[in-house]
Design a protein around this nucleic acid. Structure first.
Lengths: 151, 151
DNA sequence: ACGATTGTGTTGTATATACAACATAGGAGC
DNA sequence: GCTCCTATGTTGTATATACAACACAATCGT
C-alpha cells in the first residue's frame, strides 16, 4: 500500500533519532535538578553559569558562552537576572568593549550552600540512568567538548 | 585558607555534574537538527511530536505528554502552533473531555519530505559523538524510558 | 443521587533558548 | 589616519519549557 514510505520513515525516526533521546534526557534531568535546587531559589541553568564563572573568572561573557555552546544573547539575559541577585558582578574591561564577569558575594554563599542539594539531584540522576548510563553521558559530553575546541 | 570549601564545591560540580553535560548535549544536538530541518520550516521539537502522533495516533495530548515526559501545557501550545500548519488535526473525543490528535495531510507530506534532512543531522550528530557516544545516548534514554513506566 | 477526588486541557507568568538586526569597539591593511 | 572587517554585547521576536491556578468532566464512595 502507498503508506509504506510514511510508515517506514516514522519507524526509522522513532527508533533511532538522537535528538528525541537527548531532548527527553534534558527535560527529565533538568526537572530533577530544578526540583532539588528549588529551596535555594536557583535553577540549574543559572548554577551552571555561576560555576563556570567561579572556576574560570574573571572571564568575559563571550568566553563563557563559547565554553557552554550557548548563544551570546541567551547568556546576556541570564547574566542580567543573576546580577539582580548579586550572584554575578559585571565590570567593564580596562580598555574597551569587553565586560568582565566575577561571582558576587551572594553567589559565593549560594555555591557554598548548594552542595547537598546538588548532590541529591546528582545521585537521583545516577540512580535513574544506572552506572553505565551515567558514564555514557560523560563520554558523550566529552566528545562534544572535543569538537568545540576544548575545555 | 577559607576558600577551600568553595573551591572544592566548584571543582566537584564542574567535573561531575550530569545536568551540565546533558544540557550541553541538548543545546548542541538541537542546534544541529534545527539547522538541518530549517529548509522545511519545522523545528526538531515539532517533528518529534509529529512522529509520536503518526506512530501512535489517534492519541490524546495527555498520553503524548506522558510519553515524552513533557508538561501538558508545553504540549498544548506546541499543538496549537502545529495545528495552524495543518500538521496536526485535533478533534473532540466521543464523550467528554479528551481530545484526539491525528496527523493532518500537511503533516503527512512533511514527514515524507523530512527523511533526508533528518538523516543528515543524525549522521552529523553520530560523527560528533562517535559510535560509542551515540550508543551511550541510546542506553541512557532507554534507562529513562524504563523509569517512566514504559514505551 | 450527591459530594469529593481525580484527570484533562487552557491560560498567566517566568525563564531558557536561538536567530536576526543592530551598535560599537578594535584591528588590519593601505 | 582612514576604511573595512571582525568581535562583542544588546534588543526584538519566536519557540520550548515548567509551574500555578483555573475550568470542567468523569469517576468513586457512600
Amino acid at each position: 500500500m502507498k503508506n509504506d514510505s510514511l510508515t517506514s520513515t516514522v519507524e526509522t525516526i522513532a527508533s533511532e533519532c538522537l535528538a528525541v533521546r537527548i531532548r527527553l534526557l534534558n527535560r527529565t534531568v533538568t526537572n530533577i535538578f530544578d526540583d532539588a535546587l528549588r529551596p535555594l531559589g536557583v535553577k540549574v541553568s543559572q548554577l551552571n553559569v555561576l560555576i563556570v564563572v567561579a572556576k574560570l573568572g574573571p572571564i568575559s561573557p563571550g568566553e563563557v558562552s563559547r565554553r557552554l555552546n550557548m548563544e551570546k544573547s541567551t547568556l546576556s539575559r541570564n547574566v542580567d537576572r543573576m546580577r539582580t541577585h548579586d550572584w554575578l558582578k559585571v565590570s567593564e574591561g580596562d580598555s574597551g568593549r569587553k565586560q568582565i564577569l566575577e561571582i558576587g558575594s551572594a553567589g559565593r554563599k549560594l555555591i557554598e550552600k548548594s552542595l547537598p542539594f546538588w548532590k541529591k539531584a546528582q545521585v537521583q540522576t545516577e540512580v535513574m540512568l544506572g552506572e553505565r548510563g551515567a558514564r555514557s553521558i560523560h563520554r558523550a559530553a566529552n566528545a562534544v567538548w572535543a569538537q568545540l575546541g576544548r575545555t
